[in-house]
Each structure stands twice: as C-alpha cells, then as structure tokens.
C-alpha cells in the first residue's frame, strides 16, 4: 500500500511539471510585459520615467533573461521560498493575495463534492434498481437538464428567482454584517445559509453525470453472477444489492474525483464571478483583464495542483475500496 502511494506520488511529478509549464506559458502569453504597460500609462499621464529605475526593475524581474532562465527563477521561487512573484496591480507579493482566496475555492470544492455524492449515490442506486420506473425517468430527465444548463446561467436564474420571489439578494458567502466579524456560531450559520446556492449551482452538472455513470455501472453489475450467488445465499434483496454490486459500482464514483474535481473548480470559478463569492475566480478574472500575470498564473497553477491532490486522494480511496488495485 505504501509502495502504491509512493508510486502515485512519483507519477504526479511529471504532471505537476506539465502544469507549471502551462501556467508559465499563460504568464508569458500576453504581448509585452507589465512594465511596458506601466511605462505607457505613466508617460500618458505625464509622469517622468526614470530609465535607470526601469532597467533596475527589468533586472529584478528578469524580463531580459532567456525564457528558460525566467521559468527556472519562477519555479524555484515557488518551490523553495513559496514566492509566487509580484502582483503589479496590487503592488504586493502574490502569495499575500492567493491563500485566502484558494481557501474559499477549497471549501466550496469540498462542499460541492460532498453534495454531488450525497445526491447522486442514492439516486443512482435507485434508478438502476428501479430501471424504467417513473421516478427513474423523472431523474433521468432532470439529469439531462442539469447537464445542459451551464453553471452561470443556473446561477443567474437562481439569483433572479430568489430576488424576485423570495425578495432576498443572493451573493457572497456572508451577510454584510458578518463579513469582517470573527468566527462565531452566528457567522457559521450565516455561512451555511449562503452556501447552498453556490453548492447547488456548482454541483448540478457533476451530480447529473455521476448519476448516469452510477446507473449504467450498477445496471451492468446487477447482472453479474456474484449477485446471483449472493441471492442464492438467502440474503434479503436490499442487502444483496447494497453489499455486493453497489460496493463495486462505487469504484467509478470514487475515481470520478479525478474528473469531477477539475469540473467543480472550473464551475466554482465562473459561479463565483457571477455570485461574487470570495474565491479565486473573481480575482483571477480581474488579474487577467488587467494583465497582472503572476497573480493569474499562480491561481491557475494552484487550481491545477488542487485537482491533482484530489486525484491522489481518489487513487488512495480507490485502493482502500478495491483490493484488486491494492495488490496490483
């Protein structure tokens, strides 16, 4: 088992490397660099630009180095010092800005993932066992609808509905009075009251997909000979289903973290922009529009790392759940 985890960890290194390359590419992609645009705006507003100061800045940020040297400086900064570069827009180190926001993204990811599982597992099992029943068809219909509605449209619609019919404005994770307040029971309850809309918005598509996968898998498993064996033992039907085929059909649900998590993080980004949640999304969009590339690149890198860690956890869970993987 330890060997297995170690192997998975080693296997992650090239993927991490690839992700860092993509993030770096995005940082480098916009034409020119931040300094050029800063100089441009300074000259425009009639400020004096000291060429020596510019040269100094260029050297500090290594804008004149060859590209691989720049990458090396950037990545070693992150790995050895936790230094993600400098946010030019905020004029602060990127690392000061990101952790808070990534925390929000992480919280929402976990909450949404739990929601996805809590909803899709019982419905998936029910739909497979009662195939072609009316409720199965209803679930299937809503599943298709859930897949077809993009996150942000769902968010806008829910916002409209609650504004129009419930008379409350949705958005943010806290009511205004709690925003700066220290943690308390009241704040936690307020947080939970705000959490459900984003969680539903973010989780719907994943839930719909997972229901389909679980239904298809369980339908296959229900016809396997070991189910007949379990039945022939004299187990009651619910136990036959829950103990054997469901246990095996859950494997893809667990391994689904691998693709559900990137989708959730992706969904959180856009939903957070619409609902104005304090996660990485809105800040990332702002950074991209103002071409504050170190900040933007760091977010993209960290979101990738987040999903990668999720995959590692799903691999480990899977190995715990299925001895066939453990022994391979």
């Amino acid at each position: 088992m330890i060997r297995y985890i170690f192997k998975r960890l080693v296997y992650m290194i090239p993927t991490l490397f690839g992700m860092s390359l993509i993030a770096f590419l995005i940082i480098q992609l916009p034409p020119g660099d931040y300094l050029t645009s800063m100089i441009a705006s300074m000259t425009q507003s009639g400020q004096n630009v000291d060429p020596r100061q510019i040269a100094l800045l260029r050297e500090i940020y290594g804008f004149d180095d060859p590209i691989h040297v720049q990458y090396w400086k950037w990545i070693t900064g992150i790995v050895t010092r936790g230094d993600f570069g400098h946010s030019f827009e905020w004029n602060r180190p990127v690392s000061d800005l990101i952790w808070d926001r990534m925390g929000g993204t992480l919280t929402l990811s976990i909450a949404s993932l739990l929601f996805v599982w809590a909803v899709s597992i019982p419905i998936g099992i029910y739909s497979a066992v009662r195939r072609h029943s009316i409720s199965d068809h209803v679930f299937t219909f809503f599943g298709f609808l859930g897949l077809a509605i993009p996150n942000f449209i769902l968010a806008l619609t829910l916002m409209y509905v609650s504004y129009r019919f419930l008379g409350q404005s949705v958005g943010g994770l806290y009511s205004p009075e709690y925003v700066g307040a220290p943690m308390s029971w009241g704040k936690l309850l307020d947080f939970l009251a705000h959490l459900w809309i984003p969680v539903i918005v973010i989780g719907t598509a994943g839930t719909a997909k997972l229901i389909r996968i679980l239904r298809a898998n369980l339908t296959d498993e229900l016809h396997k000979p070991y189910v007949v064996t379990a039945r022939a033992k004299g187990l009651p039907e619910y136990k036959v289903v829950l103990k054997y085929p469901v246990r095996i059909a859950l494997n893809p649900v667990v391994s689904a973290i691998g693709w559900v998590l990137p989708e959730l993080v992706s969904g959180i980004t856009i939903t957070a922009i619409v609902l104005n949640l304090p996660t990485a999304g809105p800040l990332l969009l702002r950074a991209l529009i103002s071409q504050d590339m170190y900040l933007a690149g760091s977010f993209i890198l960290l979101m990738g790392v987040l999903t990668l860690v999720g995959m590692l956890i799903s691999d480990i869970l899977l190995a715990l759940l299925d001895p066939r993987i453990r022994f391979r």
């Binding site: 000979p225 070991y226 007949v228 022939a232 004299g234 054997y244 095996i248 299925d322 001895p323």
Partner: peptide
C-alpha cells in the same frame, strides 16, 4: 424463500471467475 436459499438448497454455477465477489 430466503431461508431455503442457501439453507436448504445450495447453488454452484459456471463462472468461477465472476461468481464470487472480487472485493470481499
């Protein structure tokens, strides 16, 4: 019925590869 399954009538069948649960 549950009592007679396994209790009074035992069953073995063809696929020895798949007639037992692989995860137990």
């Amino acid at each position: 019925i549950l009592k007679l399954r396994g209790g009074k009538i035992g069953l073995i069948f063809q696929e020895p590869m798949s007639s037992l649960s692989p995860v137990h």
